[in-house]
Computed example of a mutant assay.
Amino acid sequence: MNQQQLHQYFTQHYVDLAQARLGGETLACSDDFFAEMENLIKPGRGVFIDDKYTDRGKWMDGWESRRSYGRTHGNGSGRDEDWCILRLGVAGVIRGIDVDTNHFKGNAPQSIMLEATHCIGDIDNAQWTVLVKQSDTDAHSQNLFEVNCDKVWTHVRLTMFPDGGVARLRVYGYPQLDMNNFVAGELIDLASIQNGARALLCSDMFFSDKNNLLMPGRGVNMGDGWETKRRRDPGPDWSIVKLATRGVIKKAIIDTAHFKGNFPDTFSLEGCVSDDEAILAGDAQWQPVIERTKLFADREHLFIDEICNNETAFTHVRLNIFPDGGVSRMRLFGSIA
Rank of each mutant, 00 (worst) to 15 (best):
N143V: 09
L144Y: 13
F145S: 04
E146I: 14
V147N: 02
N148E: 14
N148R: 04
N148Q: 11
D150A: 13
W153C: 00
T154E: 01
T154D: 01
H155I: 11
H155E: 02
R157N: 07
F161P: 00
F161K: 00
G165A: 05
V166I: 14
R170Y: 11
Y172M: 06
G173L: 05
Q176E: 03
D178F: 07
N181P: 00
A184R: 10
G185F: 13
E186T: 12
I188R: 01
D189C: 00
D189T: 08
D189G: 02
S192H: 10
I193H: 08
Q194K: 15
R198Y: 15
R198A: 04
L201R: 15
L201S: 12
S203C: 07
D204I: 07
M205E: 15
S208H: 04
S208K: 08
N211G: 02
L213K: 10
G217W: 15
G219P: 01
V220T: 13
N221H: 12
M222I: 09
G223I: 02
G223C: 03
W226Q: 06
W226N: 06
E227F: 05
E227R: 03
T228A: 06
R230D: 02
R231A: 09
P236D: 06
P236S: 06
D237Q: 13
I240C: 00
K242R: 15
K242C: 12
A244W: 13
R246K: 14
G247E: 10
G247A: 04
V248S: 03
K250M: 07
I253C: 05
I254K: 01
I254A: 03
A257V: 08
H258C: 01
F259K: 06
F259W: 05
F259H: 07
K260E: 06
G261A: 04
N262G: 02
